[in-house]
């Protein structure tokens, strides 16, 4: 690793060693716990509960297999997937037009709208699951995929709006204007010029919405009974489930996150760069 990372050009040798060492330690600080979880997940149930642990973990997919066949796991995972996808669609469907409006127009109430969006970010949103639980019973959304997806979309929306705002702001207005002068109307110019250019970013913001939904525990636990999402299911079975099952479930939650963060890593920074203004 020390050959891959390098610190400031200037500064003495000692300083550089310190720099690289700190970097490596901080990387290990992040990676080792994840690694340990995965080792636990692929160890046999007896290994997980032995003390002291064997030096070299024996790989045994028994717990994972057991987890997959455990009552309700498959269903909860499927629910999580559906909820996350629905969240993605709602968040982007609503957030992208708003982001576009913020980046392209000066309109009355613009700053008020931006403030409202930022305000939701500064609010303990899962708490809203409480009144929504009652509200949902009234309108028949209780314990449904759509019901949770809406709450998750609320969580994801400020991010969706901000990422999209930043994405569209990165496309020079002139490109659209050029398209207009070359025979496009607003929609055609958007579809032929802006959309192809923002598509990667748009995908990233969709994935970000997916991750937010995939990880959310509180609202999902409050709003569902039968149609548990994976985190809600795990939370519910924390008391009853054996240890190795918890770890298998944890690994199941973490795995997609690794890929998703990798996929959206570039956009994380662009988003906050502009959000601070």
């Amino acid at each position: 690793m020390s050959t891959l990372v390098d610190g400031p050009v200037r500064g003495g040798r000692g300083q550089r060693v310190l720099f690289i060492a700190t970097t490596v330690i901080l990387c290990l600080w992040v990676l080792v716990p994840i690694y340990l979880l995965f080792v636990n997940a692929v160890s046999s149930s007896s290994d997980v509960t032995t003390f002291p642990k064997p030096r070299v973990p024996a790989i045994d997919l028994e717990s994972l297999r057991f987890f997959m066949n455990y009552q309700g796991v498959a269903r909860a995972s499927w629910n999580s997937l559906v909820v996350a996808c629905t969240t993605m669609v709602i968040a982007i469907g609503i957030g992208a037009p708003a982001g576009y409006a913020l980046s392209r127009f000066d309109f009355r109430g613009k700053s008020a709208f931006r403030l409202l969006v930022l305000l939701t970010r500064a609010f303990p949103l899962p708490l809203l699951a409480l009144p929504l639980a009652i509200l949902y019973i009234r309108v028949g959304l209780d314990d449904t995929v759509l019901g949770i997806a809406c709450v998750h979309a609320l969580l994801a929306m400020p991010f969706a709006v901000l990422i999209n705002f930043s994405l569209f702001s990165g496309i020079p207005v002139e490109l659209e204007e050029a398209a207009w002068t070359l025979g496009c109307n607003r929609w055609q110019a958007f579809r032929k010029v802006v959309l192809p250019l923002v598509l990667p970013g748009l995908t990233a913001s969709a994935i970000f919405a997916f991750v937010i939904s995939w990880n959310e525990v509180f609202a999902a636990a409050v709003l569902t009974i039968e149609h548990r999402t994976l985190p809600a299911f795990l939370l519910q079975s924390l008391n009853s489930a054996p240890l190795h099952l918890k770890f298998a479930g944890g690994a199941m939650l973490v795995l997609p996150a690794l890929f998703f963060i990798f996929a959206v890593r570039k956009y994380l920074f662009a988003m906050w760069g502009i959000a601070n203004r």
Binding site: E174, L175, E177, A178, T181, L197
Partner: peptide, 13 residues
């Protein structure tokens, strides 16, 4: 009309 922009507005894609 046709227009040439200050920043050229050549579509990057």
């Amino acid at each position: 009309i046709a227009m040439v922009f200050q920043n050229y507005a050549v579509f990057p894609h």
